[in-house]
Design a binder for these strands. Sequence first.
DNA 1: GAGTTTGAAACT
DNA 2: CAGTTTCAAACTC
Length: 790
Amino acid sequence: MDVVPPELNSLLPDEIMDTEAIVTDDDLPAVCPAPPNALERQDTPVPMETEVPEIVTLCTAAPSIPVQRTQAMTTLTSTDSTPSSGSMGTQLLLTPSSSAMTLQPSSPQVTGSLQRLSTSLALPANHQLILNKVAASPGSELKPQLLKQDGQKLVVTTLGKGGQPIVLAMPHSAAKAGTLLSAGDGKGQPQQFKVVTIGGRTDLKPMVGVQALSTASQLMGTSQTVQQGQHPKTLQITKKVPVSTAAPMITKFIITKALNSKGLNSQTSLSPVMTGRVLTQSTPLTPPRTISVMDALSSTQSGSSKMAISPLKSPSKLTVVSVASPSPASPQKSVAVPLSMALGQQILHMQQQSTPASPAKAGLSHSTTQTVKPVQTVTVGGVGGPQFKTIVPLATSPNVQHIQVPGSRFHYVRLVTASSGSPPAPTGSSPSVAASLQPAKPMVVNSATVRMSVPIVSAQTMKQVVPKPLTSAAPQVVTSQQQRLIMPATPLPQLQPLPPGTLLAPAPGSGNMGYAVLSAPYVTQLQQSTIVTLASSSGFSSPTCVQTQARLPLNGLSASESTSRQRKPCNCTKSQCLKLYCDCFANGEFCSNCNCTNCFNNLEHESERLKAIKACLDRNPEAFKPKIGKGKEGESDRRHSKGCNCKRSGCLKNYCECYEAKIMCSSICKCVGCKNFEESPERKTLMHLADAAEVRVQQQTAAKTKLSSQISDLLTRTTPAISSGGGKQPYTFVTKEVAEATVECLMEQAEQAELSNQSQAMAERVILEEFGRCLKRIINYAGKAKTDCC
DNA sequence: GAGTTTGAAACT
DNA sequence: CAGTTTCAAACTC
């Protein structure tokens, strides 16, 4: 199974993580394996500055089940060594350090997905609690309805100094959506549940909520809440399993929490570990507390799960990482939900090495009996654009090395010899996962050898990006060619000099963080390569996971909007596409399929491009940040960061950036004669016209599609006559049905012409044209049928 | 498609 | 910081 180290969440620098959805430095990283499909269903628009629920979510998400509370669903899946239908094993390990003790739930009744829960609890001295879900016997039946109502609690044990009991509560929703374990208040939020509370004082408010969304029989969710002292941590784990298309999956993850007895860090890190990998985060002063959760799902369940971990430091910030691993052979992917304003860039997300200065020191350890597939972790995102994290399996070509130097605060990424012929990352048995790993379109790998050693942002400077669910129907590991890898490239003395050929550029908007922008070919390379994460200070190798990237909102557009909307090709002629005049460049993208002349916004002119980027940043450090962001406190709507300066357009034409972004002008705009405000009659009129036009277009499209299909269907049904009649003339194909369909087409054209107030002559013309098209179709089909017959 | 208008970006 | 120029997109014909 794959593991995303908690540190990953904090890798992004502030420049690109300027969002509420970002986890603070000492916040726990989160790994969310998520099937692309699960992300697709993210209908919730993501504001530029994401408002993220203060929860940590580890979940397996079924595509059909919407995630309500979290911005993104993270699917966490793993494979079981003995995956068999009907057998389910869920193991939750809370391991402070060493020993563990077994805890049997007071109530044998568990949700269907969580049939039996045997808990092993480490001795309090060790701060280790193991909640082990024993695999159900083959003959056992799932009983999703076992948990009756809200607040049904399962007292597990007491742990920690306070000796507080660990409560496993099954919320009401668990009976339907899946298994929920909530700690403390069983009447928690319907969709956010606190699952396990370990130790801590009774007066502590549970900061971790676990949400499990799953179907009664197929979905399972496990959440854990770990509280200790005055630094409770909340972990929300939501797991959703695809109902039908899901492949056999067993999810196992181990979360190691570093105890912070000193209170140095109020933030407790929970690191999900899949399939036996244990991620440990601990402070130098205290032994780490490890929480491992192993979920064995029935073989009928598809293996994808999401896991979102939200550091509690900032309630408004959420860290979500997706990890999916349906099967051992299947690649694991997760979708990081875009939090802020990424520009469709991709960021290599390196494992962060904990430092003494960092309150939470994380370590990685293997604790699994299952084969863990190494993966490369790629965080996709960028300043001013969609941000997402992609973790690519390491299984195959080791083109990318994820290097972490012990004692170093930085992470390195080395890209080595990406061969053009290197096969893509192996896909798993799970269709959904495999599909998600498939690039949207074949990507050509740059045959040139690329070597790169890039320092990654230090632990303190990194923040977590909230993954955003994919909205596009086609999940993509690497989306458009416009996307880049942004790699923190803060120069450090101990860093290896970048070899010649290394194409690193400060990501637009990265500012001093020193992000490197990698072009799409790099993404491809990374996708097909592996990242080897060396041990952190603890010496453990980092777990890896596969993630699919999600399209992030672009300039305030929702993911769906940004996904559906193709970037317009630029037409630059004089700027060489190296100035902000060029939309491609301004969005931090390479020109592709553009109409520009003398374009330097490409790999061939990387040096010039880097200079241009630097120049832009010199002029305006926020040049590459999204212009459309969230307004001030209390202003729910998006607004232009700088405001427009329109003089003559009345801010009702696309010249106006506010109007173009479909937002109203704000107080910071310096426009003259602005009509782009809420009560503006002109604006309302325009909006109505635009809406009407859009509706009309949709209707026309739908009507044409329907009629065309009808005609085709009718023509198809006449085929037998063709075969029997031999050399029939085209008119013989004009059956009654065909004639009726043709008439419908003509009538539709007439209606459209009438709706659009076209003149009679024009209406007649379009009708005749349609008639001609219908006849042509009939003739063509007749000819084709004749040929086929012969 | 050519020409004009517009406003952001770049420049001074 | 303000004024001017440059630029490319939006718009009009």
